[in-house]
Design a protein around this nucleic acid. Sequence first.
DNA 1: TGGCAAGCTTTAGCCTGCTAATAATTGTTT
DNA 2: AAACAATTATTAGCAGGCTAAAGCTTGCCA
Lengths: 146, 146
Amino acid sequence: MTHPSDSRAYFFKIDTTIKKIRNVLQKRFNESGFDLTVDQWVLIDHVARNQGISQNTLAELTTKDAPTVTRILDLLVKKGLVERRMSEEDRRKFNIYLQPEGIKTFETVLPVVKEIRRQGWGSLNEEDYAHFVRIMDSIYQNFSEY
Amino acid sequence: MTHPSDSRAYFFKIDTTIKKIRNVLQKRFNESGFDLTVDQWVLIDHVARNQGISQNTLAELTTKDAPTVTRILDLLVKKGLVERRMSEEDRRKFNIYLQPEGIKTFETVLPVVKEIRRQGWGSLNEEDYAHFVRIMDSIYQNFSEY
DNA sequence: TGGCAAGCTTTAGCCTGCTAATAATTGTTT
DNA sequence: AAACAATTATTAGCAGGCTAAAGCTTGCCA
């Protein structure tokens, strides 16, 4: 291999790693009795930190597309974790709020997620993190034209 | 942030990066008139390099699950790119082969994929690649118990 | 003011990822 | 040899990612 990019390895490695992370999260959720998918958690996490956020902004922050946000919110509403309120200023928008049950879920799940994050990072250090961020951002930027 | 793992940043960054890569690949496929999804390409790539491979092995190599491999192969067979042949030694297995049309597709698409790999890696160097591999493998290993 | 473009959300349709269950075949064990 | 376990692939069902198109609402502009 003359240059790293000649191998499919780096696409594959990223793909494999994120799959692993998602699997571990989901399994831990299931073991813990959380009736929640990883992506449902991602939305809850963002809503908890941005009560009243619009679906649009939610989509931007999570890099999910609008239809996906709609569907995940449908499920969360059905579970009673989240509420859509018509925006006062702009009737095209919904403001999304956690219901009491959603707040409870957030507070219950967050420590578990944090623990998994720590476990995944393991003994990697600040310098590794700097490398990681620099490399991932670089790849992203190299595709910024798209 | 006292420790990198306290932030959701690294899960998110990996997720965002792989999404970006997939989007770029798919758009370039579409622009180039390839009637092919990224995951269909991944299977073609592996079959091209391992003619006669079983679906099971294909699943392992691509870290896809068996049902997904079944469905993607169904599509590739329908497109006439790939062929399932019953295994002689073990009638539970299929051996997968590229059809002439599939070989043509492989040879046409490969240069485009290579170009995108190079573009994504940009001016990152061998040392960066070593960091990248070490960090991603480390994360994966930290979850190896699962 | 009336019309038209732009923005927010939803719907529909396809593809992929995951689990659980099933069918068919092979391997093992007694 | 017969029963049982393991392996390979498929089917079904739910969830999420993507695009395209539609319905409302808002903003702009003539």
